[in-house]
């Protein structure tokens, strides 16, 4: 208040145009605009430098291996021979497994929380589940090593008895494996799927439910045949966001995947993921080609998550427009 009256009383128009520009800057509007604009531009700059650094520092590796980098599976730092296929395979397989476990559980829980549970219980449970998303990934890794892996060793014979005939569950099982990594990732992405899917299901107009129920549908039929299709894009968006997160997840995976750069069909076999190899080998990497190859892995991971995130945004945005 005091400030505004002083401004109002000291505004004799300055004669010189140069001074008036100066005055305008001092009055703050242009200054505030420039400062905040600079901060916004800074965000673009940082992201630009990030992309450039990834690109230029992987130059040596890209020049030497070309696209073969993505399709060969020799990872031999001694011979300076690098192929990323085992890591891409491990990343994709663990994320796919995480989705196989996470989608039914996550969407199921979201349906329950949005459609069935009384609002108070729903809010309380959602609060709890969203806290799961705040748990640091290294803690998931810690629990993965010391709790999940021993449990998996216990239940392994049961899994083998039921699914052992498939190539996915064969060979020796040491605990640390693609399977363990997939389960840890599933636990990590479920909160994301639940919290976003619940929001989109809650946003479905109640006319839709009421119309279905009035036509004689059961509660489940109105939910599954009417509400869920209505919210489909949003739910798909939540799944893509979860996928992007699991592709880039580092610590928890590194701690339980087994760190073995081989491509095996069995989920019981140890594997390796892109993020895990960067985390493990970056500080030990000697030689420019080695570093360059690891940075190119970072570039691959970056490109992968950008595409998946873009798809997610597209789906969620389309829902908002509808």
């Amino acid at each position: 208040m005091a400030a505004s009256t002083t401004v109002a009383s000291n505004t004799p128009r300055p004669a010189l145009p140069a001074r008036s520009v100066w005055r305008r800057i001092l009055s703050g509007d242009s200054l505030a605009y420039s400062v905040t604009f600079a901060a916004a531009a800074m965000i673009l700059l940082v992201t630009g430098i990030l992309v450039w650094e990834l690109y230029s520092n992987s130059q040596a590796s890209r020049a030497k291996f070309g696209w073969n980098f993505l399709f060969t599976s020799t990872w031999d730092p001694v011979a300076d021979q690098f192929g990323a296929l085992p890591f891409i395979y491990g990343t994709v397989v663990t994320s796919a497994l995480a989705l196989c476990i996470g989608i039914p559980l996550g969407v199921g829980a979201a349906i329950f929380l949005a459609e069935l549970a009384p609002p108070r219980i729903s809010d309380a449970l959602t609060f709890l589940i969203e806290l799961l998303a705040a748990v640091p990934s290294v803690i998931y890794g810690l629990l993965g090593i010391f709790v999940l892996v021993p449990i998996l060793r216990q239940v392994e014979p049961a899994i083998r008895a039921v699914l052992g005939w498939t190539p996915l569950f064969q060979g020796p099982f040491y605990g640390v494996s693609l399977f363990a990594a997939g389960v840890v990732l599933a636990v990590m992405i479920i909160p994301f799927i639940i919290s976003i899917s619940r929001e989109v299901i809650l946003a479905v107009p109640s006319d839709q439910r009421e119309a279905a129920l009035a036509l004689g549908a059961t509660r489940w039929e109105s939910t599954w045949d009417v509400v869920v299709p209505y919210a489909r894009n949003g739910i798909m968006g939540s799944i893509f966001l979860a996928l992007a997160r699991s592709l880039g997840e580092t610590m928890a995976v590194t701690m339980v995947i087994g760190n073995d750069p081989k491509i095996k069909a069995s989920l019981f076999a140890p594997g390796y993921s892109i993020a895990a190899v960067v985390a493990n080998e970056f500080t030990e990497a000697t030689g420019d080609m080695y570093i360059s190859a690891l940075i190119e892995l970072g570039l691959v991971l970056f490109a992968l998550t950008i595409v998946i995130n873009g798809l997610a945004r597209l789906l969620v945005a389309r829902r908002n427009m509808a």
Binding site: V46, L50, G248, T250, A275, V278, G298, F302, I306
Partner: peptide, 11 residues
Amino acid sequence: LNGVPSIVIGI
């Protein structure tokens, strides 16, 4: 930038 994996930010 929000979607960039943390390990890539490390690089």
